[in-house]
Design a binder for these strands. Sequence first.
DNA 1: CTGAAAGCGCTTACAG
DNA 2: CTGAAAGCGCTTACAG
Lengths: 348, 348
Amino acid sequence: MHDVAKAAGVSQAAVSYAYNRPHKLSEARRAHILAVAEKLGYAGPNPAGRSLRTGQVGALGLMITDSLPYAFDDPATTELLKGISEVGELAEVALTLLPCPLESARVAEGAGVLVRGAVDGFLVYSIPEGHPAIDTVLSRRLPLVFIDTPNPDGLPRVGIRDRKAAREVADHLLSHGYRQVGILVDRLVPDGRGGTVDAARVKAARDHVMRERMAGYAAACRKHKVPWRSVRVVEAGGFDYERACAAAEQLLAAEPVEAIIAASDLMALAAIDVAHKHGLRVPDDVAVVGFDDIPAAKAAGLTTVRQPLVDKGRLAARLLLDIIDGKPGREIILPTELVVRGTCGAAH
Amino acid sequence: MHDVAKAAGVSQAAVSYAYNRPHKLSEARRAHILAVAEKLGYAGPNPAGRSLRTGQVGALGLMITDSLPYAFDDPATTELLKGISEVGELAEVALTLLPCPLESARVAEGAGVLVRGAVDGFLVYSIPEGHPAIDTVLSRRLPLVFIDTPNPDGLPRVGIRDRKAAREVADHLLSHGYRQVGILVDRLVPDGRGGTVDAARVKAARDHVMRERMAGYAAACRKHKVPWRSVRVVEAGGFDYERACAAAEQLLAAEPVEAIIAASDLMALAAIDVAHKHGLRVPDDVAVVGFDDIPAAKAAGLTTVRQPLVDKGRLAARLLLDIIDGKPGREIILPTELVVRGTCGAAH
DNA sequence: CTGAAAGCGCTTACAG
DNA sequence: CTGAAAGCGCTTACAG
């Protein structure tokens, strides 16, 4: 910038104005400066210099506690991303994806991006309780909004009533009279393990969302006199379709179940696929409900509970932008809605 | 940092070392500095200051010429993102999403994020020829890699042989003897318009990829003596499923077609859905082929041509990282592969 | 193992 | 409408 100013015979400030305050310069002078810059190969104001000076970056950081490739596989995460990016575009801010290892042991090595990432604030998505990355991001002392995460300290947050929503959909399913029930969850404890889950592991669930949903399912079972200990719970160990299928396979391979409660639509759809492969009709031989109401749920006629995923992203991003602007943070709880389609056996 | 240094009774440099060069300080001194920083509420080295000083940001910019919410809807883009983010994670760099308006008229207003985004380099994804954002990003004089975009200047690029791949899959379809053929494309000209396309618009296609694929389809038709002017081409005007369905609807509503060549799997799957709604069997009443081989194509038994989407993202990101490291850029052309499943009527 | 100093590139409040 | 100056927070080469 200094060189451009010199070559154009103006002050450095004038060059800055040429880019940022066009009306502070005469048109001719501005054109001249820009022409000289072009000739010299000057690329325009350096973002780092600007950031340092203004204290603003123009980017929102989205912290994801999973490998990114994984996150893109999850339709619910994709919906959330849509909502977030809508707001980012409107506000002309970039969205910076900050992956960080899920296993606590690997956090130190992966924290660099959290510590060094140039952002104006953080969106913290679905992170297990007590995860060290929470401290890391808190230590940056930047505005932040949690999504689907408990906030014991009353920090800004966007979420839904997971327990109530889970109870509702399970309640609806069980009201059809099923007694042999299985539950499919993606992940209770982030240790990569899957398979049949015992009561201790359910209790140990580090994921707030999953713990709440399990509590909701249990409440529905209680109401319908389905003994909780008779309910088989299988954990996929991850969010991809393959693991979901493997979990469903495991559930269906054991004693027969009349009904499957899946903690996500992806798992529910996997369960339906696997059931069909076993020659079972849905809902006649086995009923299934999901959670989320992702776009594919409708096509499959899946009974599920809708949570406004896009809105969640949109509101979280907007809230963060507000906080960055100095407005107070708050907690936003979004409504959910039971969506009855065919897979629960509602027509029977 | 200055304040921390003062409070800890050390130089500013020592504070910097405490964070970045742990071994340059005695353990005790480092611990002391960190403790003082903690007490003072110092959040650690400011990324903007670091960037300014080192000239490095630690982020890759991904330029998307579409609204981001839109991009997340496209399974092919999602696959690409997976590949890119894999590399980013390994290299501990963040991925910054830089949306920029597709319509040239709106580029000026949306260019801010391109101009101000703090990144070490750009991945430029599927951008129409002559789009002003290309100049914007070029003017930043940062390393960059094009994905699926022609690079007349021999700039680094990752792509596939779109024409050849399109020819192959269309050739296979037509070899079954179909004469009444329709083509479904997502977007030829980025003006948001959809509907039946005339020869002029095909010629005017601003998207390199689509132009190449159309050329490939035309070549296959020529080979099989299907008069090109008898081939109806319908453009969706976008990448979402709804528009794909509308385009398929339009194609099927007119004179009957025996075979549909879709320029993406998403469009092919939409065509199959719409055909079923019309009571048509696939491939008996109408054959369909796609392009990409997204995960859903397999489940649908779709005949298509596989392009290594994840690899494309992975290689592009790696190439960009290499260029940032000072290595020379190059062009990478990835192989494609015809995947024959059922929807082309291969079994007949 | 520690410290003093220079300078990365920018914006803005202020004076003219 | 224009210019001179200060300072944002940092890292590193260098001297001790």
